[in-house]
Amino acid sequence: MKRFLIILFSSVALLSLAACSNDDDLSSTSVIRESTTEENDFDRWLQRNYVEPYNIQFKYRFEDIESDMSYYLTPASYEQSIAMSKLVLHMCLQAYDEITGSTDFIKAYFPKILYLVGSYAYKTNGSVVLGTAEAGAKITLYNVDGLNTATVNAKTSYFKTLHHEFGHILNQTKPYSTDFAEISGPDYVQDQCFDVYKTDESALKDGFISPYASKADSEDFVELISLYVNRTADEWEDMLTTAGSSGREKIESKFEIVYNYMKNSWNIDLDKLREIVLRRAAEAPNLDFDSLE
């Protein structure tokens, strides 16, 4: 009796197995498909200069899914996108390569997607968005239509935005000392930053390197990085002079923390980075913006 049952069960088991085992052949055709979009010279150039060295996707073609749907936006131009890709490489990514000695730093920490938009993002109140960063994964650059390669310099907004957003990612990876937040602690005004500080001068006098720096200590920190590397020592000193004695004191003590953080956590000397960024920015207008070799 017992044996019979066992036989019966095992036959059931065998039958069941036999009946369906050949159903599950994986299709030899992948469901992941090659895009039907034709690859052009720029796509191939990006593969060699962004994907291979840095694993960064430089998305110049407009995609709803990458766009902020709360704005009305337009695609970036093909020619302007090529120019932008060369400028970002020369003025930002390679500046870090140069100071760290390899492409590994950018490859490890820089956001994996750079997304371009032709127009500004206009808010309903008429103000404009220059750039945004999302969760350390993507930076969007707006107003690519407005790029003028002949007049590009270290302070051109797109590149300042990149240093700013990259600063956030570094902070998120290795936090900075809590001492920093205490210096301007009660003075941060959150979203009122542009209402409270209508001019750079008024922000400087209160110890903020820019109006946006008054938003929160995390913004203050990366504003100090991005504005420092884009200015000569004289220009920086002019800002501190404008700040007056109390503003200067706050900015200088905050900057000391920023400088030491970059030095100790990342082994990046901001003075040296500044030198590299300024030199590369001066070279930028003379880059070859046509070749896709």
């Binding site: 110049y60 073609r61 995609e63 337009t74």
Partner: peptide
Amino acid sequence: DFDTKNSVIN
């Protein structure tokens, strides 16, 4: 998708 700038469509 018109995915790069076209000034006429703009």
